[in-house]
Simulated scan of single mutants.
Amino acid sequence: MSKNPVDLVTKLSLVSEYWSPKVVARLNDYEIKVVKVEGEFVWHTHEETDELFFVIEGELTIQMRDGDVNVRPGQLFVVPRGVEHCPVADGEVHAMLIEPAGVVNTGDVGGPLTANYDDSLTS
């Protein structure tokens, strides 16, 4: 157990790839991840869990079939389980994700953007 706070800005400075979340902490059965994104992700669904996006820098649009949501710095949005969505960033966005351990970032579709979660940022 670390007695130091997690500095999200410092952790994000260590991330070099887009759409590749990195685990920075754990809370019970949840993982706290940081990610840099740019461009459009893939349309996908998480049937078993909600997904929380907290924007630190930039502006993230979360496309959903029934309308888009824009999330700005200091704001968060929870995509409910089972809702098909596709995150999009016109410029670089830094964000934090909170989701149960083991959740696959591409949900039910897989593909080349499926992340291999790296725990190297937890210490």
Rank of each mutant, 00 (worst) to 15 (best):
V34Y: 02
K11Q: 07
H46S: 11
D7H: 12
G74L: 06
Y30F: 15
G82V: 13
R65H: 12
D118L: 12
G67N: 05
D66F: 11
V35S: 10
V9E: 14
K33I: 13
P100W: 03
T106P: 00
L60H: 00
G91Q: 15
E47H: 13
C86I: 07
H44C: 06
L52C: 10
G111R: 13
V23H: 03
I62C: 03
V34E: 02
V35D: 10
K36G: 04
V79L: 05
N116E: 13
E17Y: 05
H46L: 08
A115R: 02
N70A: 15
G67H: 04
D108F: 03
Y18C: 08
V88T: 12
L113M: 10
V103M: 11
H85G: 05
E84H: 05
T10Q: 13
V83Y: 03
V109D: 04
L60M: 05
L76S: 15
H46A: 09
E31C: 08
E17V: 09
V35E: 12
L60S: 03
S13R: 08
D119K: 14
G39E: 09
F41C: 02
N28V: 01
A89C: 08
V103K: 10
E84F: 06
E17W: 05
A25P: 08
I32Q: 04
Y30P: 08
D119W: 14
N4A: 15
P87A: 11
M1I: 11
V34D: 02
K3Q: 14
T106M: 01
V104G: 11
Y18N: 12
H85T: 11
D66V: 12
P112G: 05
S13A: 09
E48G: 14
S16I: 15
V103H: 07
S2G: 06
I56G: 04
V79S: 08
F41K: 01
V78L: 04
L76I: 13
G111I: 02
R65C: 06
P112T: 10
M64W: 05
V55C: 05
